[in-house]
């Protein structure tokens, strides 16, 4: 690896689990641990931070109904904005990822997670919910334009001791690590960031570029937005 690899990859775990211990959090931790040990075997380091949404429940509700981001939300946004990779793990309630989990991602800026590699994971009490990850969580993360890995990780009660769950976790971890190593997110952001839609102050308050050469800026300064048709 190159010299920059000395800097550990920043892996952020977002867990929507609400109990302690929570199986949703445990699933996320297993994936994160696997990514870390795979990385270690390749002489790379991973620094893991965890956002337990349970602790942010009040601030998420506040952010949904007002425009105020509390201190924990602000910290979570900083962590995600700087993340090289994300593991997002939700409990399934009523055949959908929990409202707490979805709401957290609903209040993030649309451009905060662009191109970042993500493993999607979910837990449920029955295998009947197995498609929640692919059919519901994937579309949310597609909207956020993340780079979700091909393997989804789903664990129902009966999966916890199965060898196959371990294999899926392995697969997802490898996929995540390869995407991180490829530097895809960084390259997209370096080469193509401007081509996505942004608002002033979006991307968690970091998107502060102002393009002075737009039609609207021309209009703002006494000119005309649209080129006039010749009579």
């Amino acid at each position: 690896m190159n010299a920059e690899a000395a800097q550990p990859y920043r892996l952020v775990v977002v867990s929507g689990g609400t109990s302690d211990p929570s199986s949703t959090r445990m699933l996320a931790d297993r994936i994160a641990d696997r990514v870390a040990s795979l990385a270690e075997a390749r002489d790379e380091k991973v620094a893991v931070s965890v956002i337990d949404l349970r602790e942010l429940a009040n601030e998420i509700a506040t952010a949904l109904v007002s425009q105020l981001m509390g201190p924990k939300m602000t910290r979570a946004i900083e962590l995600l904005g700087a993340a090289d990779a994300i593991v997002a793990s939700a409990p399934v309630y009523k055949a959908a990822p929990s409202g707490l989990f979805s709401s957290f991602f609903h209040v993030l800026d649309n451009d905060l997670l662009i191109a970042k590699p993500v493993v999607l994971a979910a837990t449920a009490g029955t295998a009947r919910h197995a498609l929640v990850v692919d059919e519901q969580m994937r579309s949310l993360f597609a909207y956020l334009r993340t780079m979700t890995v091909p393997t989804s990780v789903f664990a129902a009660t009966e999966d916890w001791n199965s060898r196959e769950l371990g294999e899926r976790i392995d697969r997802a971890a490898v996929e995540l690590l390869l995407l991180v190593e490829s530097g895809f997110a960084e390259k997209v952001r370096t080469e193509s960031w401007k081509s996505y839609q942004h608002e002033y102050g979006s991307a968690g308050g970091t998107e502060l570029d102002i393009d002075l050469s737009t039609d609207l800026m021309r209009l703002a300064t006494g000119g005309s937005a649209a080129p006039r048709r010749k009579p």
Binding site: E199, Y200, G201, I210, L212, L216, M217, L219, A220, T221, G222
Partner: peptide
């Protein structure tokens, strides 16, 4: 609150 074009217009004039 968050529109650079409005700030630009204020500054221009």
């Amino acid at each position: 609150i968050r529109t650079p074009e409005i700030a630009e217009q204020a500054a221009f004039y």
